[in-house]
Amino acid sequence: MYLSHQTWPELGDYVAEESTAVVPLGSTEQHGPHLPLATDYLIAEALAREATDRTNVLCTPPVRIAVSEHHRQFHGTMWVEPGVFRDYVESFSRNLTYHGIDRIVYVNAHGGNTQHLREVGRRLRRDETAYAIEWMWDESIPDLVSSIFEHNGPHGGPKETAMIMHIAEELVRTDRLEAARDGGLVDLTEADVRQFGSRTYYDSPDNSENGVFGDQTDATPEKGAQLFEAASDQLVHLIEWLDDQPFEDLMPKPHVDPQPGSRR
């Protein structure tokens, strides 16, 4: 059920019976010379729509601009400050709770959002408003991702390339796959990212001249379909699990006994 396509009475009928919502989040940022800036939010929305269609759970419109300052040197990248992002997500999440939602899955496809979504979830849980959790698609199927790509990459690599080939193949510049590979960093072990135990990079171009990692020529639409199906299954399982949990079991545990075992 896509929230934006419903009427308010139809949504009233939904929250009379259900209290779970799914929110897709991505970014608008560079993904190399071969992928669109929309890559992350396209993946997040496609997975969220697929899983909510299968579970009849509410799906909101996607969040398209997020925490991406580390890609700012590349044309077109848009971002907001981390605090602004956290406050914005918390605000619309509380808006959902006003309408009767008490559990939320943030379907995330951008690594820069992860820690901030976790923090928002902590805030909402702390005052027992809602239980909100972050889900990152590739982290739900790590063994599959590792097994089908020899040189994977955390950004603009073959996994994201394959996913967009499956979701929106017309947006992939297939004639630039070799350029993406040759102008980026194929093997992450070759990156000089630490000195004496300290991480010495902040921005994407510190490690990759064209902003991407891995071997993009290893991506195919068939591999993208395999990833999409496997990740969708994981998201469906998560939604069904969350929907089944008693709300009180999702809330924080009580303060520990100050003197456990003592007699009073």
Rank of each mutant, 00 (worst) to 15 (best):
G156Y: 08
N113Q: 10
V57H: 12
T217Q: 11
T7H: 02
T77L: 12
E222L: 03
E29I: 03
S262H: 01
T39D: 01
L58N: 07
E150Q: 14
V15F: 01
S93W: 03
G183A: 05
L238I: 08
R72A: 14
D87I: 04
K159C: 09
A130R: 10
N207F: 08
P62K: 13
D87V: 02
P24T: 05
Y106Q: 08
G224W: 00
E18H: 15
E170S: 03
R176T: 12
A16I: 11
L242G: 11
M251L: 15
E150L: 13
T114H: 08
Y131N: 09
P252I: 07
T39H: 01
A21T: 04
A132S: 05
N108S: 08
A219L: 04
D13I: 06
S232H: 02
T77A: 11
V23N: 03
L242P: 12
G121D: 13
W79N: 11
A225F: 06
G224K: 03
H255E: 14
L96F: 05
S146P: 04
V67D: 08
S147N: 11
S262L: 01
T60L: 15
K223T: 14
Y14C: 11
G112E: 06
V89W: 11
T77G: 08
G157Y: 07
P24Y: 03
V15H: 01
P33C: 07
